[in-house]
Design a protein around this nucleic acid. Sequence first.
DNA 1: CCGAATATGCTCGATTGGAGCATATATGGA
DNA 2: TCCATATATGCTCCAATCGAGCATATTCGG
Lengths: 350, 350
Amino acid sequence: MNMELSGRRKPTPEKSQLAPDEDHELEPSLGIGLNAAIVAVSDNEPVALVVRGDPDSIGATDVLPFGPFNPREHRTLESGLRAWVQDQTGLDLGYAEQLYTFADRGRHADAGATPNIVSIGYLALTQAVGHHGLTNGLWRSWYQYFPWEDWRRGRPEIIARDIEPRLKAWADKPVPGTSTQPSIARGDRARICFGLNGTAWDEEKVLERFELLYEAGLADEALRDGRPSAAEWTDRPKLGLPMQSDHRRILATAISRTRAKIKYRPVVFELMPDEFTLYELQKTVEAILGPHLHKQNFRRLVEGAGLVEPTGEVKTRTGGRPAKLFRFRREVLLERPAPGVRVSAPPSRS
Amino acid sequence: MNMELSGRRKPTPEKSQLAPDEDHELEPSLGIGLNAAIVAVSDNEPVALVVRGDPDSIGATDVLPFGPFNPREHRTLESGLRAWVQDQTGLDLGYAEQLYTFADRGRHADAGATPNIVSIGYLALTQAVGHHGLTNGLWRSWYQYFPWEDWRRGRPEIIARDIEPRLKAWADKPVPGTSTQPSIARGDRARICFGLNGTAWDEEKVLERFELLYEAGLADEALRDGRPSAAEWTDRPKLGLPMQSDHRRILATAISRTRAKIKYRPVVFELMPDEFTLYELQKTVEAILGPHLHKQNFRRLVEGAGLVEPTGEVKTRTGGRPAKLFRFRREVLLERPAPGVRVSAPPSRS
DNA sequence: CCGAATATGCTCGATTGGAGCATATATGGA
DNA sequence: TCCATATATGCTCCAATCGAGCATATTCGG
């Protein structure tokens, strides 16, 4: 998925139709589901709204909130999403954006008996609130599912301890069906994804990293799906909480998109209260991206870009000099073409 | 769509389901279709593969190639896409990426009787070839559908002559159903989208611009769909070729994505022959983005980023000094995190 | 009243990107 | 043949940006 070097593939031809009219004979009995990665930041922790798996079932894993889409009731996918999220959780979604449409078979535990579902993943940003009105629902840090993504206290140990050696072993293993070698060698993919051997860490490659772990059989979901690569490990470590179906993949996509978007659209403010200090804003950005700028430059950046304006108030009790309070300057949307927290790539902390 | 300022909406609650298991009751009788915007560059012109509308029907408009997706035959959406494109056109797609999933009713001529279709738009980049093996299919410049997007010979006249005055008139008109005012005023949207009043032109806002024209009733599709805003114009100009259904919207999304992606991924090379001069490369980039860099800096940029390497050969018959031939340096993918033609925003050519 | 902790303001230097000058090497016509 | 012209290529200059650190301001708790 998303392999740039993939070269041209030769698929087998098959029946299809290509016509200017829209009266196609189409596959019946398909359902559309909407999966939402609803993200907030609570106490400097990026959290997603999840529904806890049924503890009675074996291997109770979390799921993302899900709702069917009925085209007769809703004009657009997004309005359908907003409706059931509002109905089920009481949350009023601020920013919502489509992520990706999955229609894969074989990624489910019960492949073959799958209900032929198309699931459209959405990312939604909202403010952290205690109440969400969801039975079995809870806000959980997204780093519980992806511990290797949390660089706020430096490089996560889990990479050097659990991931790196196993990916290297996997890269050295002979590839089974060796007829079609992948265009990028496993070793190179591992190095680029996880910033090994001095390669820079790219915080946006969340999905690529998870897919690599899945392919290598290191994600719990790979074992659940019966992937041969997973069965081969004798000492498979726990690499984050698994989720049902391919929901961890959807969440990974959501994190990738959030990390990318925050840099060129003012979406951080969807996660902030109306008034905040610049340091609180920085902490929120860093919760999502990892540590980036030092304090003085972050201030220069956001003030200089016109993203915020002082309210005139100050917040005392900061442990030192009181901090000015700021609010989002909505007018920036009318002025700049792509306003965002333009933090550039950090200087290769590997 | 994609309105950042949209604020929190209050949708009406409705029936839905939110459960950790996957046994949802889902809407039956839905079909999945794949629409492909297959893009190439031919003679310095960005072209898309379209199927000419049936000339017997009234208002024969073009469509994008379409194929149904059958989850029983194909494991993933992308493999399904590659299969029928290969089968129908003989084209071996190089780069393919999912664009957006549309499930809107009401955008079709025959709303109400719509076949409840979900269409998943794909962008595919390929090399320009004369033969495509498609009855009624042809390569057509994407600027025929979006003439206001072609800035290669300066600001297109159509903006000042046909678009700007009408958008201003539309902005001054009282909004019907005025209960919920949009968060960004019409005038501001028009200014930002089309770079009016000295605002910088953002070449990536292709979709926003088309949607604005549609809303204002200036796109032919709006009239076809029976939008009231379209009927009010007494002198509606021809603003590009229309397409059937919402295919022009899909193509707009494809152009947006191509323009964005070319800057941080080496996707231009999917459009180039194996060997090329740097000026040919620049012309291809400019065909997609509009004029950006002057020649010397483009050379410095591309060579400095390690995107290309000389083949040792030269191309004579350039009308002057022979030009060195280059090829894409695939190894760049192993070195840099986000290699692309990093042309930055041009200095506000309004 | 002092020291610690935090907030805020300013400067310096390296890097990047836009623009132009200068040089190299073809083609075509006088 | 030789020169005008056109294009390709190499190099320099300058302004804007960005990372990093120093300096100052203001509060709180002994």
